[in-house]
Amino acid sequence: MKLGLRLPQRLGVDLRHDLVEAARTAEAAGYASLWTYERLLFPETPVESYADLPNVPWPETSRQAADPLAVLTAAAVVTEQVRLGTAVLIAALHTPVQLAKQLATIDQISGGRMIAGVSTGWATDELQATGATRADRGRFLDETLDVFEAVWGPDPVNFRSPRVIIDNATVLPKPVSKIPVVLAGGGINVGRGSSKAVERVAKRADGWMPLLTTPGPAGAAELRANWDRIREMASEYGRDASRMEMVVVGNVTFTDRPAGADRSAFIGTLDQIMDDIHTAAESGADELIVDLNLQDWFVSTRQMLETAVEIRARAEAAGV
């Protein structure tokens, strides 16, 4: 299993210098990929709790999230081999043609290393700031995927949807090669049907980007069963499921003492976090994104990177 690292975008980051240091350090340490996340704004009185979870407040320490595509562009210039991904972009916050062009441009700058992680989003405050609603989310994501296929394909491009009309036009640049599109979100109860989001992954995506929430063998078994079902569904749609990737996200929160048996994955001591990395590998994940952006006691990017380097070294030593 490969390891990726989310780049620092939060409040307090020196965007001029820290991004370059983080990208270079992560690549030198052996991380296979660098990732960004998208938060458009941070409402004082949000409509929903954070991540649409009951009674979870929006994090005070992350009241800035630098633009994900600008951050990846900076990383592209100072690295040579790591893949560059978004985890994730919210489709409804973007004009589809402009987003397709931005992603293709970064792919050209990086020499073909771009991965497009995309989702429907959940925050009403962000959606309404761009003229969308929660009801639009799935429709706008499907439209965005349609536009990607059209704009990244051969010229002249002809496309028509309720929001987008392209009439016999050249749209450049094209990606170096097909940009993998990985979709986040969705849940599935194996044997009990599937959600629209999971069907979209199986039918249209190059991969799935779930969160690992349950630690230990139970968490590995749950993810593995879901992933097996998604790939089975993809095969039923006539797709080559062996070419799909599962990229798991690990949102890390360290604790001073070992977290209890009822903990969520990636909450605990460094030893417990390493156990969770092993769990992700056992689930069949192709890649794990290590996210240290929400860690309160990382007072500097250098401190964050020291921990990131240690995590990578320990994972390599353990054969993950």
Rank of each mutant, 00 (worst) to 15 (best):
G260C: 10
A129W: 00
V118Q: 05
A135D: 09
S283T: 06
R312N: 12
A220H: 02
K178Y: 07
R6C: 15
M304T: 12
D286F: 10
A129C: 03
L5C: 07
R6W: 15
M304D: 09
V147I: 08
T214H: 07
M1I: 05
W208A: 04
R302F: 06
A315D: 15
K196A: 08
T36R: 03
W152L: 02
I267D: 02
I230K: 11
P59C: 06
V56C: 09
K178V: 11
V299F: 03
A28M: 14
L99C: 00
A87D: 11
R224Y: 14
R314W: 02
T279V: 01
P96D: 03
H94M: 09
D271S: 13
T95C: 13
E21Y: 05
D286C: 08
D275L: 07
V97G: 04
G250H: 02
L212E: 05
G138W: 09
V13H: 00
A241I: 13
A65R: 14
A28Q: 15
A100V: 02
A280T: 05
E60I: 10
W35G: 02
F298R: 08
A87V: 08
E236W: 01
I289G: 00
A205D: 10
L41R: 04
A285Q: 10
Q81L: 14
P162V: 00
V78R: 01
F140G: 12
R302K: 12
L183R: 02
T73M: 15
S33C: 02
W152I: 01
L305W: 06
I90T: 00
I179V: 06
V78S: 03
N251Q: 12
A202P: 08
P8L: 05
R63Q: 12
V157D: 04
M114I: 06
A280L: 04
S177F: 09
R137K: 05
L292F: 14
G250M: 05
L145N: 11
T279I: 00
R243M: 13
L5F: 08
P57G: 12
G284E: 04
D228C: 11
E21R: 08
D262K: 11
Q98L: 13
T269C: 01
A317V: 04
T213P: 12
G250K: 03
M244R: 02
S62Y: 13
V171D: 04
P96N: 04
V20C: 08
S264A: 14
N158H: 09
P8M: 05
V181M: 03
A135W: 04
L53N: 00
G207Y: 05
S49Y: 06
A280M: 07
D142C: 14
E310G: 14
P215W: 13
L223P: 10
R163W: 14
D275G: 07
G250Y: 03
F266L: 04
P46M: 03
Y31T: 11
D146I: 04
E143P: 01
W208E: 03
E232A: 11
M233I: 07
I179Q: 00
Y50I: 09
V164A: 01
L93H: 07
S195R: 10
W152S: 01
R163S: 15
V164D: 00
L34N: 14
A51S: 15
G191L: 09
A70N: 09
A51P: 13
T214Y: 05
L34F: 13
A315C: 15
